[in-house]
């Protein structure tokens, strides 16, 4: 028996969401009195893989898997699960996990809980908590099959911070040719840019910013905090910001420790994407903005005047910390 966790590699590094999944898998394995095994796909230093915290890492390097085609990855995961007697298979609830985990579950006729936000209870029933109704409620879901599949919502359980020393073994699953022709358009992103779904801190802005040319101060505040930037739907729809920054019901769901909403009124569709945030700050010139009702901290005032002052205050705080 074992717990298997899928480890995604992007640009030669283990993705933060996968580190969380590995950390989660280790805890689940100890709950079950067994070991966690990682399945890592892609080019990376073995020394780096050894540190993810599981007992053993199966390392797959196969050019046919470079595009991360879920159909092929699912077969590789199932092969690894069978070889290691895995009874629990864990993924991050991100684009890759959403593509691969359900395929693995369907292939094995294994029950799946997608978007877990806590560890399973394993005494008797195997039950896991997840957010439902767009964050307006939670469900405790029991998996009734022998093999169980879980996708873990990023930034839900955090990292243990432990540095592991796993044995890294080469693993060569049978891989067919992909039916997808995948071309990666690599973006020129600066190294300190934080991907939104992984971010612990998010600075988000809406139509109150009046135009895309005013986003500099949003980026400055995000940069000072070490936060990712996000936006409301209208802002993405009119093209001020890219679609992947749109948080809300029809966009991305985030669950950061801190969500700062600037010039966003707080429509229920927007709240659906952010209501899992641990602390919410709302800055709006309209004291009647519905978002204030959902906020922990609020400031009524002119963002153009307030934001640069907040950025300075953050810089001062960081300078004092160093």
């Amino acid at each position: 028996m074992s717990v298997l966790v899928f480890i995604e590699i992007a640009k030669g590094k283990v993705k933060k969401a996968s580190l969380e999944a590995a950390s989660y898998a280790t805890k689940v394995a100890s709950q079950l009195g067994t070991q966690a095994v990682g399945l890592a796909v892609g080019q990376i230093d073995a020394a780096e893989l050894a540190q993810v915290g599981v007992s053993k890492v199966l390392h797959v390097i196969d050019s046919k898997l470079e595009g991360y085609d879920p159909q092929l990855l699912a077969k590789a995961v199932v092969e690894a699960a069978n070889a290691n007697g895995s009874k629990v298979i864990i993924f991050s609830h991100d684009t890759t996990g959403k593509g691969v985990a359900p395929r693995v579950a369907a292939r094995l006729k294994a029950g799946l809980v997608a978007g877990a936000i806590d560890y399973p209870s394993t005494d008797g029933k195997f039950t896991i908590k997840k957010a439902v109704f767009s964050g307006k409620a939670f469900a405790n879901v029991t998996i009734n099959t022998d093999v169980k599949v879980i996708t873990l919502t990023p930034n839900s359980v955090g990292l243990t911070g432990e540095v592991g020393s796993a044995a890294v073994e080469a693993f060569a699953p049978a891989v067919d040719a992909s039916k997808l022709n995948i071309e990666n358009v690599v973006k020129a992103v600066s190294a300190d840019e934080i991907p939104l779904p992984e971010a612990e801190l998010v600075v988000s802005a809406g139509r109150g910013m009046k135009g895309p040319e005013n986003w500099g101060m949003i980026e400055d505040l995000a940069h000072a905090l070490g936060a990712a930037t996000a936006c409301s739907r209208p802002v993405a729809d009119i093209g001020w910001r890219p679609h992947h920054e749109h948080v809300g019901q029809t966009g991305v769901t985030v669950r950061p420790n801190l969500y700062i909403a600037i010039g966003i009124s707080g429509a229920i569709q927007h709240l659906a994407g952010v209501n899992g945030s641990k602390v919410m700050v709302v800055i709006n010139k309209d004291p009647e903005a519905p978002f204030f009702k959902a906020a922990d901290y609020g400031i009524v005032g002119d963002a153009f005047e307030i934001i640069p002052r907040l950025t300075e205050a953050v810089k001062k705080l960081k300078a004092n910390q160093n």
């Binding site: 409620a137 879901v141 029991t142 009734n144 005032g301």
Partner: peptide, 26 residues
């Protein structure tokens, strides 16, 4: 189905928002 919902729950009530005057934004 392969899974079943054991129970649903609602998030805890949110405490009142703490307002900060704009002149003390820092």
């Amino acid at each position: 189905a392969l899974t079943s919902v054991e129970s649903y729950s609602l998030p805890p009530e949110k405490g009142a928002v703490k307002m900060i005057a704009a002149e003390n934004a820092e």
